[in-house]
Design a protein around this nucleic acid. Structure first.
Lengths: 213, 213
DNA sequence: ATTCTGACTGACTGGACAGTCAGTCGGGGC
DNA sequence: GCCCCGACTGACTGTCCAGTCAGTCAGAAT
């Protein structure tokens, strides 16, 4: 067994232990036990406990990022969006242990780390919001606060995946893709409008609320 | 200062410390320091650290439960739903510290505790799903998997509140209510259909959206 | 005045755990 | 056959912190 292999084994062991026990409850002793090595070995490959965790999350982040392609508004939009959804689903469900870790990461870790995760979600939301803005310009996204649409969507996805990984794999994969797409579509996508000219804005919500001094 | 008062003070202090540092990073020493009492005093009022946490979360849970009323389908549905949303918003935003605690609770606590939180969300989802089923029967909710609608909604709400409490109180309260309602409505509520006899969903989403009446 | 009560204190203990390091072992070079 | 190297080991250390308990003290009771 060479170094790279051992490292991988430790990573896998750490991932499993983190996923089942959470970051804090996971002891380095648990990890090395699962990898069947001595404690010292762990520290030959990683400077400390946290860095393994960071490396694991980084990996998932970048795989997720790679799975999401910017939608080309010239092509078949529905197909592209479904492709993106399928990509995300694949990355997350292929590694349920890590997914669980990401979705329910422990707050109250050192703030620097919490900030890292937050910034990831911020990135996703920003990307999504920009896509939605563009979509509005093209008339395929309903009017409204795109930033809130983005928040709404991310939250909904988080929850769906939490449910899919927590409990025993409730929904079959392709059905998940289909249902997520349908929710997005009914929720605010208006793809069938793409050919029509942009529609006028519905009356804004009444804001009777004044700034109370 | 009598016993009840002291107890409350300790609870408040614990809540603040938990909210800022998270459960694990919060030390009993931090809590007693904030409450300006000695460590031993803490243990006169609570058997251990965890029980304060449980008591805090229980409180929020029950306040939330109290805020949600079952929708009476005879009355003004929109008003009732908005009322419920407003109630939830009020409970959560009135105590941002606790809300943050609830939304981003540390997983990897003892499983019993994680199960507790999960069962709460399960309860909420079940309630929601039953309402949605009823809504479908009445034709005010779009066809589809109500259980997934429920998951979607809960996730979206979680995320919106996370954002509202994390960062500095981004959205004014009544606007939040309004926007959540609009999202639900566009997402799957079809209230304007309530007066018509139940309609089967059109095979294609090719509705020309006009001011119907 | 003296005793009693119970709220409060804070130094201390015991256990848990991240990280260390002196030492073992096997194999490859000479 | 001996030595060297580096992967690996696991007993050990230092730190941190939840929870304890012997003791203080103000005021109520007698």
């Amino acid at each position: 067994m060479d170094k790279a292999e051992r490292r991988l084994e430790l990573l896998r062991a750490a991932r499993d232990v983190f996923a089942t026990k959470g970051y804090h409850a996971a002891k380095v002793d648990d990890i090395v036990a699962r990898a069947s090595v001595a404690k010292g070995t762990f520290y030959l490959y990683f400077p400390d406990k946290r860095s393994v965790f960071v490396e694991l999350v980084d990996g998932l982040f970048s795989r997720l990022g790679a799975a999401i392609l910017t939608v080309d508004t010239q092509g078949d939009i529905e197909a592209q969006i479904k492709h993106n959804i399928r990509g995300i689903v694949a990355v997350l469900l292929d590694d349920p242990a890590l997914t669980q870790l990401l979705l329910s990461f422990a707050p109250g870790l050192d703030p620097a780390f919490a900030a890292k995760i937050r910034s990831f979600y911020d990135g996703v939301k920003t990307l999504l919001r920009m896509s939605l803005d563009e979509g509005q310009r093209l008339g395929i996204v309903a009017e409204g606060d795109t930033s809130m649409y983005a928040t709404f969507t991310v939250g909904a996805l988080k929850e769906i995946f939490t449910e899919s990984t927590d409990r025993g794999q409730a929904w079959p994969r392709e059905q998940l893709v289909e249902q997520i797409f349908r929710l997005l579509q009914r929720g605010y996508l208006r793809i069938d409008r793409a050919l029509d000219p942009p529609v006028s804005v519905p009356p804004a919500p009444r804001k009777t609320r004044k700034k109370s001094a």
